[in-house]
Design a protein around this nucleic acid. Structure first.
Lengths: 182, 182
DNA sequence: CGGAAACTTGATCGAATTCAAATAAGGTGG
DNA sequence: CCACCTTATTTGAATTCGATCAAGTTTCCG
């Protein structure tokens, strides 16, 4: 069964034997949980809701059959795979080679651009829904809870972002991008 | 053009603007460079040889057409995608949540198991071809050159592995697995 | 033999973790 | 609406893992 997110935010999470967690991907409305992935379910990997979520599931067999018959569907699936792999590769690079501030800045910008694509963020005000808890950010960036808090405080103190009431506003897009070093 | 490795080792590498490098995947004979990936070439990502390499390339269009017509070929492609994504997810978790020794142990065990699958490693002696330089290991694990040397020296000193002459022997598989914490 | 890579080793530094409280924000039953 | 409890977040201090710096030493090859 492959879930497709219809509404709300979720995350696919890998949980280590010592209990620590790594978020592999934050799932927004329209995302398939782990594109091709859940064709061959991964040990230790699961999908968790961040907000309340509405979703539908597809049976693997149906999906497979449709892909072979429907060329258009196949093309869209391929695109989704490519996008997901590209994001996975970016994440690998972030975790392997970038500092805490860079990782967090990139996470925010990433989410912002994905929300924008879906018409779920205000292009003018740079405001977006932001239901992530610090522990989600920590698990997504491979950092500790405490350090996430420190970096975000610093961002806030220097007037780069404003956070409140499950929403986030990018006050200084330039500055944030400079930190994220594209 | 999507390259398929026929002989030798290669790596797909992402190079940051500051010159630091992250290996996304080490490619062994039989691997497609970035399975579906190179359908939509990634900025900043390239494939580099580690040893001398022999390879063939496929045109995207051909590959796409074949996938739609040939169900068996499609199934094998899907499997390759799944395997690659699974490995990418493991790498994300390694970089996000594991220590230097764990990462290096896992890299070695990973390579060993992939070589074994291809009949390219001795199951009895636990010996395998190992052409990686320390800088390759560093770039694959998100560590510094110097630290890789220190960790490997420690592994050698405690008799867990033996390294020499472009080959590596796992002397204490149990110990290595214990460090890698599956 | 000489020069360049590759590797090792020790010393020092720094980013991020862990530890430990304190404070703030939510949610619940009374 | 308030007291109470739980879950988030903040802040500071101490610690640690791994990076960086700086020489050495080895290995490889022409």
């Amino acid at each position: 069964m492959v879930p497709l997110i219809c509404e709300g935010w979720a995350a696919s999470v890998y949980i280590l034997s010592d209990g620590s967690r790594q978020i592999l991907s934050i799932l927004l409305p329209g995302d398939l949980a782990s594109t091709a992935l859940l064709f061959g379910a991964q040990a230790g990997c699961s999908v968790e809701a961040i907000t309340d979520v509405r979703y539908r599931t597809f049976a693997q067999a149906d999906l497979k059959a449709r892909l072979l018959n429907d060329a258009d569907c196949f093309a869209r699936f391929l695109r989704a795979c490519i996008d997901e792999t590209a994001r996975a590769d970016q994440l690998i690079t972030d975790l392997g080679r970038r500092t805490a501030a860079e990782r967090i800045a990139r996470l925010i910008l990433n989410l912002q651009s994905r929300l924008m694509q879906r018409g779920m963020a205000q292009p003018e005000t740079m405001e977006m829904e932001f239901p992530l808890r610090h522990h989600h950010i920590a698990d997504a960036t491979g950092l500790s809870l405490v350090h996430v808090s420190k970096v975000l405080s610093e961002f806030r103190r220097s007037g780069i972002v404003k956070i409140g009431d499950r929403s986030l506003t990018i006050l200084e897009p330039e500055a944030l991008q400079r930190i994220a070093l594209m």
